[in-house]
Design a protein around this nucleic acid. Structure first.
Lengths: 148, 148
DNA sequence: TCGTTAACTTGACTCACTCCAGAAAAGACG
DNA sequence: CGTCTTTTCTGGAGTGAGTCAAGTTAACGA
């Protein structure tokens, strides 16, 4: 992480760096994802509207796609969950997902560079990334299950 | 794999082994998934209808869920794709997905038993499975990209 | 400041999937 | 074999994330 609490001008710089136009919805979406990691689209729309007032859901979808395509955001989509977005990009980290409540936490990649794993037999595929999802139970759900 | 070409009676045994009732749609779905690995629900419905005639999509969804819950099928759901099902269960293998055409191939797990990876920091989660998805380009799309 | 072009708004629409209520079939038991 | 109970199947309506399309607005370079 370069800066712990990015400001609007940081987001502006990121957008310009990706040769994207700087607009209020884009800054608001970037800010929302930075402050709410692993948020789904609906939550992001809610946060953006709190900051900006009326913003169409379509705009948020467009912005999310543009920023994901530009590499400023990363889209994650564990099974049985809607799409979620996070701002940590470029460090090839992975995720652990709670089977019970669906909460997500980051897990640093043990290797660091993509692809961090080699396939035993790649079937001729040219592999550029290995995505790892750990499935388990989060601390809250573990204690809740024990006490019940 | 116990048998390379399972027959209807094999499927019947599998169903009884999971204490599930033996019905024609279930056998047809099992057979369809065995002969079309990584097929999506729609394709499965098509194959089942070729064999049985009219079967409601609801029945296929129910059967797929019942068989998945019983551990006879495995549901996989890579990003940007609809749910797919496969018959290889219990060997904790992984998948490689083509970014270009979406095709999926199996990759044997290098370790063998779940979870085959340890997280560097598990945040207190109790992890029982590590799912790996390799992203890349399949041989067909690689040659197609070169020749264009 | 102006024109171009990308971005946003609005609203309808798609598609995978689910829910529901009633009809039909499978398995258990006498 | 015949009846009863439970599970499954049918058909249709419904849900919700996400997309498409046409028109308007606003960013940015000249």
């Amino acid at each position: 992480m370069v800066c712990p609490v990015p400001t609007a001008s940081d987001f502006e710089r990121m957008l310009r760096g990706a040769s994207l136009r700087v607009t209020a919805p884009r800054i608001a979406v970037l800010s929302a994802v930075h402050s709410h990691p692993h948020a789904d689209t609906d939550s992001i729309i809610g946060v953006v509207r709190q900051n900006l007032g009326a913003v169409s859901h379509q705009a948020v979808y467009d912005v999310l796609r543009a920023l994901t395509g530009a590499g400023l955001l990363r889209r994650i989509e564990p099974q049985g969950s809607v799409a979620r977005y996070e701002a940590r990009v470029g460090d090839n980290h992975h995720h652990v997902v709670c089977r019970s409540c669906g909460s997500i936490a980051d897990v640093d990649c043990a290797v660091g560079a993509a692809p961090c794993l080699d396939a035993s037999d790649d079937h001729g595929f040219v592999i550029d990334e290995a995505e790892v999802i750990y499935w388990g139970t989060c601390p809250e759900c573990t204690t809740a299950a024990k006490s019940s």
